[in-house]
Design a protein around this nucleic acid. Structure first.
Length: 822
RNA sequence: GCCCGAGUGGUGAAAUCGGUAGACACAACAGAUUUAAAAUCUGUCGACCAUUGGUCAUGCCGGUUCAAUUCCGGCCUCGGGCACCA
């Protein structure tokens, strides 16, 4: 074997071997248990960053570990290739988005190979290719036929100078990022998919995912936001044009007697109609439109409103209440109107204080509650007992809900309703670099789906980007189409890129299938994904859309299971300067330099060692060198061992104590690392445990005799196999140097020898009044009374028992004795 | 603003089911080796006091417990998401 560890040589050799032997290519094989391990595919932004390295190292470690468990492991890779950055780069570099994208995927593919990730490259997907998006278009037309797709007016950010729609990211402090103009809200017709039709199933099936982080399930539950409330109708005192009233939804019907005003969205039809004859209101509505549509902006902006002067009639008392138009009420949510109860809603409270509207208390803290109410300072938002509510006085929330719902239902003015916060998925984008929405617009209005034989609707790749208008919107020729002799026009909006990432995991099972969206046999063999790994930033949107799409595909008969991802690991963010690394922030760290300096194994080792995978980590280069030194020590240890001669056959029963200790450490490490890789998925502690083993090897090994060499051989071989998923290149070289014909990837995971774990004594800690005052070595499984006695005999313990009486002794076998005394 | 997390030595972290706080590393310092440096090896390494040992210490305040980094309540700071960044 080479005396020196030269990563470049070691890694080239291993990678060539995997390439030549197609080590990671898999096919359906019913004789083996399958394991589908998937990493969230990258957006091809140019170069890999440390977040990618972390993500793909995790899946590669799991892939190789499962492979060594004897499973048939699928680990695919591809490119989430449509998206906004390609358009920006194309403008900047005067090229076409397609060209830029393909050159990035070529470069990043090379980088992924350099890192030694075991992907089945025969399944590589690129979402901007027609072979992929054709099926997405086809599926959309199926959803359209099923009535799960519709078109409606919806609000976008509008840059009045550039005359273009802006993404939320392109709105900075309320202004367009290029023009600097104040952004306006604009309503345009857009396509939606009815995710709300699946809200109930999406929330319920979270309970079928025991191997998802609780945190992610909670976020999704809150996002879907199921609530029980009341739809209510308010009549207008005097009709406004054709409108005699409007609907609102509330989850707090118990507060209805405290309603002192109602608010309409600026885009509400009643508000619009009133504005026609009210110039002040026209101005106010215009002012409301100057702001971004992002929810965070809506929630943090200053609340403003204007009294319209008209009155609505309280649905129970018939009393008139004033009707306001408010900037925080959104037309896209619910009915675009809300009832306001200043005494019991903090936002309404602040609004009422600002505009001098009455604050009427109708809820008092329950007798049993410690809550305090002080309406001079803040709203009381807890549930309690009704007061000042006439016949409902004294009722608690549930009783009041039922009574008030009953009254309103009888009067035909209200109805109990389950509502969801979740809104239908708007999939239209007014951008070029996306999959064209497969619809024909008819000259007389209306639209029809592009029939299957006309799919895909191809996106031209050879275009010039001017930065303002989408090339397909500008291209009148492209828009032209005919259907059965009729002249029609192609839709020029493209799909949200979440569409592509919502089903790629399924397409990996049959990436080259031409007969349909999915090959059912392949999909049924591989799905669900056994392990999905990706950034926590995708906890809601991507993971919810993918779950939704899976259910849509199931109902189309394309897949069989109910959920796409059996187990989920959300890696923490790799932060730089305390914030998310991203191209737009320009704070990415390029792993390439580190690979050149130390090799891929060191980069992989360090990225796994630095922190547990779910924790966010602040990137720093220091520490990488330490990982490299560990690999060098490992190399030297194996080299020294080989030079020391051939070991004898291990006689485990007749070893000196030091050698027994080393064997025990070896097998304890197998147990620890197996648990860390399989159940816990804490790769940092697995590495630490292996480092401990190597430290013990250097302390305890005895190369002077054949038995000592045999024990050392066992320890070193174990360490190599345990590390093989993390540092596959060096492991492969060292394994070969030790005379093995197979590569570690194709070896079985090390077997635990329970008999090596036995020990005769164990350290027991002694506490007096909760503080550690001594330790003792006791025979394993010593009875409680013996441990108590031994503990009380200890000199230091006695010192702390002087002058006090022992009240109680708690013994935790093989662990601790706790003495309570005073 | 709302939802979800996180906070432990100079640094990254460990403590898995409430039981020894700081495993394993990085950095630093000291020593060995070297003409010298690098590399390597050995040792020290939370703070304060001290003599073996003790006191304090896991963001802050409080609670439960024989025992709390771990459970509960309230706060602070930082990070992620908020539907057109992916």
């Amino acid at each position: 074997m080479q005396e020196q560890y030269i990563p470049a040589d070691v890694e080239a050799e291993a990678q060539q071997y995997w390439d030549a032997n197609q080590s990671f290519k898999v096919v359906e094989d019913r004789s083996k248990e399958k394991f589908y391990c998937l990493a969230m595919f990258p957006y091809p932004s140019g170069k890999l960053h440390m977040g990618h390295v972390r993500n793909y190292t995790i899946t590669d470690v799991i892939t190789r570990y499962q492979r060594m468990q004897g499973k048939n492991v699928l680990h695919p890779m591809g490119w989430d290739a449509f998206g906004l950055p390609a358009e920006n780069a194309a403008i900047k570099h005067n090229t076409a988005p397609a060209k830029w994208t393909y050159s990035n995927t070529d470069h990043m593919r090379t980088q992924l190979k350099q890192l030694g990730f075991g992907f089945d490259w025969s399944r590589e997907l690129t979402t901007c290719k027609p072979e992929y998006y054709k099926w997405e278009q086809w599926f959309f037309t199926r959803l359209f036929e099923k009535g799960l797709v519709y078109k409606k007016m919806s609000t976008v950010n509008w840059d009045p100078v550039d005359q273009t729609v802006l993404a939320n990211e392109q709105v900075i402090d309320g202004r367009g990022w290029r023009s600097g103009a104040l952004v306006e809200r604009k309503e345009i017709p857009q396509w939606f998919i009815k995710i709300t039709a699946y809200a109930e199933e999406l929330i319920n099936d979270l309970d079928k995912l025991p191997n998802w982080p609780e945190q992610v399930k909670t976020m999704q539950r809150n996002w879907i936001g199921k609530s029980r409330g009341l739809d209510m109708h308010f009549d207008l005192a005097v009709p406004v044009g054709e409108f005699t009233g409007f609907d609102i939804y509330t989850t707090r019907p118990d507060t209805i007697m405290g309603v002192t005003y109602v608010s309409l969205a600026a885009e509400h039809p009643i508000a619009k109609l009133l504005a026609e004859t009210n110039p002040k209101l026209t101005q106010f509505i215009a002012d409301c439109k100057v702001q971004s549509v992002a929810e965070a902006d809506m929630a943090t902006m200053e609340k403003a409103g204007m009294d319209t002067g008209i009155k609505a009639l309280h649905p129970i008392t018939g009393e008139p209440v004033s009707v306001w138009v408010a900037n925080y009420v959104l037309m896209d949510y619910g009915s675009g109107a809300v009832m306001a109860v200043p005494a019991h809603d903090q936002r309404d409270y602040e609004f009422a204080k600002r505009y001098g509207i009455a604050i009427a208390q109708v809820i008092a803290p329950a007798a049993s509650s410690a809550e305090k109410i002080d309406l001079a300072k803040a709203a009381f938002i807890e549930k309690g007992v009704l007061v000042n509510s006439g016949e409902y006085d004294g009722l608690d929330f549930n009783a009041a809900f039922d009574a008030i719902a009953g009254t309103l239902e009888m009067a035909d003015k209200g109805q109990v309703k389950t509502n969801y916060r979740l809104r239908d998925w708007g999939v239209s984008r007014q951008r070029y670099w996306g999959a064209p929405i497969p619809m024909y617009n008819l000259p007389e209005g209306g639209e029809i789906a592009v029939p299957a034989h006309k799919l895909p609707v191809l996106l031209p790749e050879d275009v010039v980007m001017n930065g303002v208008q989408s090339p397909i919107k500008a291209d009148l020729e492209w828009r032209k189409a005919e259907l059965n002799g009729r002249v029609v026009e192609k839709e020029t909006d493209t799909f949200d890129t979440f569409m592509e990432s919502s089903w790629y995991y399924a397409r990996y099972t049959c990436p080259n299938f031409e007969g349909g969206m999915l090959d059912k046999a392949a999909a049924d063999y591989w799905l669900p994904v056994d392990q999905y790994v990706g950034g926590i930033e995708h906890a809601i949107l991507h993971l919810l859309y993918a779950r939704f799409f899976h259910k849509l595909m199931r109902d189309e008969g394309l897949v069989t299971c109910d959920e796409p991802f059996e187990r989920l690991l959300c890696q923490g963010m790799v932060l730089k300067d305390g914030t998310k690394m991203s191209k737009s922030k320009g704070n990415t760290v390029d792993p390439e330099e580190l690979i050149n300096q130390y090799g891929a194994d060191t980069v992989r080792l360090f990225s796994m060692f630095a922190a547990p995978p779910e924790q966010s980590m602040e990137w720093s280069d220091s520490g990488v060198a330490g990982g490299h030194r560990f690999l060098q020590r490992l190399w030297r240890a194996v080299e020294g061992h080989i030079n020391a001669g051939k070991p004898g056959k291990l006689d485990a029963a007749n070893l000196p104590q030091a050698q027994k200790d080393l064997r025990r450490k070896t097998h304890e490490t197998i147990a620890k690392v197996s648990d860390d890789f399989g159940r816990r998925q804490t790769f940092n502690t697995a590495i630490a445990a292996t480092m401990e083993l190597m430290n013990e090897v250097s302390k305890l090994s005895d190369r002077a005799n054949l038995q000592g060499l045999a024990v050392e051989r066992e320890a070193l071989e174990t360490a190599i196999l345990l590390l093989a998923p993390i540092v596959p290149h060096i492991s492969q070289s060292l394994w070969k140097a030790l005379g093995h014909k197979q590569i570690p990837l194709n070896e079985s995971w090390p077997k635990l020898d329970e008999s090596a774990l036995t020990r005769s004594t164990i350290e027991v800690v002694i506490q007096v009044n909760g503080k550690m005052r001594g330790k003792l070595d006791a025979a394993i499984d010593s009875p409680k009374d013996i441990l108590e006695q031994l503990a009380l005999e200890q000199e230091n313990v006695q010192k702390f028992l002087e002058g006090v009486t022992v009240r109680k002794i708690i013994v935790v076998p093989n662990k601790l004795v706790s003495i309570v005394a005073n």
